[in-house]
Simulated assay, not measured.
Amino acid sequence: MTQNSEILCIGSVLWDIIGRSASAMRQGSDVPGRITRLPGGVAMNIAMTLVRFGMTPTLLTAIGRDPEGDELVNACSRLGMVTDHIYRSQDLPTDRYMAVEGANGLIAAIADAHSLEAAGAKILRPLMHGPLGYENTPFQGPIALDGNLTLTLLEEIAQSPAFARADLRVAPASPGKAERLLPFLKHARATLYVNLEEAGILCQREFKDSESAAKGLLDRGAVRVLVTDGGNSATVGSADKILTQTPPSVLVTRVTGAGDTFMAAHIASEANGASSDEALSRALHAAATYVSGETPL
């Protein structure tokens, strides 16, 4: 692959509405802070990091034909993403995500991705019926796929001939949607990106660290996994190799999107020919820089 490799990002592209405070918070807290609205969603966060690493991602998602949707599509185009194949609905509003973060991390979040779920397989038409691919001539490049799609659609993707030659990189979007990755647990072309909690949900047990979680997923039939544990260790595992590293220690100023940044940086590093050790290291540094509030490159 070249630095400008084509990659598809399939999943949620929406508006992130994030409230952040420098104070530690608990249920019922009322504190000063800042509220921002930025393009977000798992697929979008991955795509933004891929652009910073020199790649040109193509978005497959659902965005409403409302003023918020027009603004969001224009923002994606300005950021360097291909938006020609986005499904634009007249009837469905543009999705949103709202989160509150304090000095002690994420306090609460609500993902309103109902339009993406309602659009279903319509977002995949360019991949199944052209011009990006067809069932008899499937897309052969990398695909970043997020778990905001419905379980039914994810099951269809796991079995579809249109994805049979793709390099699938799959993330659950949140622990609450981790079980949606089950169709890919034994998929021969899938790499799973999960955190410690999500690995535990998929394996129906608790793990003490990323290495034991990676081994647990491999024992369940996964071909390749990457498991993160916040500021603790991260592990990439496959049948022939287990590699664990510790991320740099930084002051955390934001958490929403950190996992997506890690995943995208890892994909881009491997696309550019990095070794397993180098790709994991670069991904951890990108995520650490992101949570510290700096630009990840």
Rank of each mutant, 00 (worst) to 15 (best):
M1A: 13
S12W: 00
D16G: 11
G19E: 13
S23F: 10
R26I: 15
Q27G: 02
G28V: 05
S29R: 02
G33F: 03
G33Q: 02
R34P: 00
R37L: 13
P39C: 07
G40T: 12
I46V: 14
T49F: 00
G54R: 00
T58V: 15
T61C: 15
R65D: 14
D66R: 01
P67W: 09
E68N: 12
G69Q: 11
G69S: 11
E71K: 13
E71F: 08
N74H: 14
L79S: 11
Q90L: 12
D95I: 06
M98D: 00
A99G: 10
E101A: 03
N104S: 08
A113T: 12
H114G: 15
S115G: 14
L116G: 00
E117S: 11
K122S: 15
P126V: 08
M128H: 10
T150K: 09
F163W: 13
A166W: 00
D167L: 10
D167F: 10
K177F: 15
A178M: 06
P183D: 04
F184G: 11
Y193P: 00
Y193K: 02
Y193I: 00
Y193N: 01
V194I: 12
E198L: 03
G200P: 03
C203H: 06
F207T: 08
K208D: 14
A214P: 03
K215P: 00
G216H: 05
V223W: 03
G230W: 02
S233H: 08
A234D: 06
V236F: 05
L243C: 08
P248Q: 09
P248D: 14
V250Y: 10
V255H: 00
V255R: 05
A258M: 03
D260N: 14
M263P: 01
H266A: 05
S269I: 03
A271T: 15
G273E: 08
A279K: 06
L280I: 08
A283G: 13
L284W: 02
